[in-house]
Structure formats: structure tokens, C-alpha cells
Design a protein around this nucleic acid. Structure first.
Lengths: 139, 139
DNA sequence: CCAATATGGTTCGAGAATCTGACTACTGTC
DNA sequence: GACAGTAGTCAGATTCTCGAACCATATTGG
């Protein structure tokens, strides 16, 4: 079984759990929308930055932000630093949805710690962080 | 940084490398098609099993196998054990494509070992395998 | 043995996510 | 001030995915 595939299982499991819980709580956004939502900073973030961090093109990010805006989770405001750019900011509903997602994330991670044990989890995290150095093109 | 996201980086990096290399070598199949292709056993595999292992519905698997069949990477043959079922088998081109994918996979994994060291990689693998026990719905 | 139910697979229709290419509006530089 | 570069959007197309409905075959209970 190759390492990359082994990495995929927990990722997919987490994503499924989070989406289910968020939906359960009445916040309807998809996985792709969630990936954008999760990367919006406290003071707003540019579309281009969101796209880069989420690993998609600007067009795709525009498309997803359109949907999120229509659903009321984010708003676009002008970027005071550059009249070409616009900042995507979370609305109140957006913050609430993200909060739920973060909470479930923490719960699932706690389950993992319970299964693996504290010290093995810490080692796993360290190894993955080092692996990130050679697998994440964005830092 | 949450654990699941840390898991995602190596997975995405591997997928990108493999797809690029396979395309480079003149074999045109997509990531989703590759996930099916990679799970076809030496004596053929049923659509339903492929779907389950790849984590998609039977409809999706049917769709992907149709494309792979049209492209000449697999063929469907009757399952001698059950007249309802059909076995998906790799063609020669299918085997060749999978071989390249496996080779690149091994190369990338070797790079990771070089970065992490033998023993840390082994520990990482063990941790991920244990994590799989609680995150992989299929076994 | 056969009716009822389950299983393997396909077709159809729809929606989500993604890309490439072409465009507008603005920035910064020479 | 002209012009190359950057931020974002629009349009069109493709790929992947699922749910619902369906057909053919298998299995099982009476």
C-alpha cells in the first residue's frame, strides 16, 4: 500500500465527517466551497490568494466565491490597498459555519489521538510537517 | 494546522507527479480513471468491487470504465462465476500505463524516504496504517 | 418448483467542480 | 503618458459524481 494512498484515507474521512456535521447544523456548503471558506482570513483575503492556497485557479475560486456570496456566507469588499483587487470576508453566518467545521475537526482529531495515543500522534504530525516541506508548493 | 490537511499535501503532490509522468509517457488517463485502473487485479475485477475500493458509486465506476474501455486500457469479460457480473481486465496498454504509474510512485516515495529518513518513514507508515483502521470504511 | 427478494450492472438526467481562453480594469515602470 | 503586468471576471467546455429507474440473473423461503 503506497504512502500517498495511506495519507488519503484520513483526509477523506475528515472531509466527510465535517461536511456531514455542518450540513446537520443547517449550514449548506459543499466540500469545495468549504475549502475556500476555511482559508478566508480575519480581515478578508484576496480571491487570488484563496485560489493559490486552495490549489485551484482564480476562475474556480471566483466561481466558488460567487456561490458562497449568493448563499450569504461571504461578502466582497474593495481592497483599500489596490483598486483592482477585492477582499473576500466572512459574514456572520460564514463565521458560524466555519466555527462548527473547526469544532468537528477537533473532535475527529481527538478520536484519532485516542486511537493512536498522544506520542504517536505527535510523531505523525512531525513527520507530516516535514513531508509538507517537499510536497506543498505553497510554503 | 490540522492533521487531515497535513495528510492532504503528500497525497496531492503524489497524484500530480504521477499524472504528469503518465501523460509525459503518452498514456492519457485522468486521476479518476487512474484510481480505477490501479485497482484492477491480475485476473480482472468486478465493477462493484472497483467502485467500493475507489470509494465511488457503481454508476461512477461504470462511467469511468466506459471511458477506459473506449481508450483501450481495459476490457470487459463475462464473469464465469456469475452471469450477472462482468470482470474488468487490463489490456496491454493498461498494464503499461499502470507500470509507469507504479514506477513514478516508487520514485516519489523514495524522495520522501530520502527527506524523512528510513526509520521515520517506517513510523509514519505504521501510524497511517493504524489511522486507516478508523478512517477507511472499506476494510 | 416458483414467487419474492437481493445483487450486479447499466442508462439517464442532473449538478458540482474544474479548466482554458478571452476580456475589463487598474498598477507600476520607464 | 504608453505599455507590460496583475486582479478579477465571463463564457464555454469537460470531467466527475450522484440519485432514480431499470434489466438480467441469483438466491431463498414456502
Amino acid at each position: 500500500m503506497n504512502l500517498a494512498l495511506l495519507c488519503y484515507f484520513p483526509y477523506r474521512a475528515m472531509e466527510a465527517r465535517v461536511v456531514a456535521a455542518v450540513e446537520e447544523a443547517g449550514y449548506a456548503f459543499t466540500v469545495a466551497q468549504g475549502r475556500i471558506l476555511a482559508r478566508v482570513g480575519p480581515d478578508g483575503t484576496r480571491i487570488g490568494d484563496l485560489a493559490e492556497q486552495a490549489g485551484v485557479t482564480k476562475q474556480t475560486a471566483t466561481f466558488l466565491v460567487n456561490q458562497l456570496e449568493k448563499a450569504g456566507y461571504v461578502e466582497r469588499v474593495p481592497d483599500p490597498a489596490d483598486a483592482r483587487a477585492r477582499l473576500v470576508r466572512l459574514s456572520e453566518a460564514g463565521w458560524a459555519g466555519v466555527a462548527i467545521a473547526r469544532k468537528v475537526e477537533a473532535e475527529v482529531e481527538a478520536e484519532w489521538v485516542a486511537h493512536l495515543g498522544e506520542s504517536d500522534t505527535a510523531a505523525l504530525r512531525r513527520a507530516l510537517e516535514r513531508l509538507r516541506e517537499v510536497t506543498d508548493p505553497y510554503r
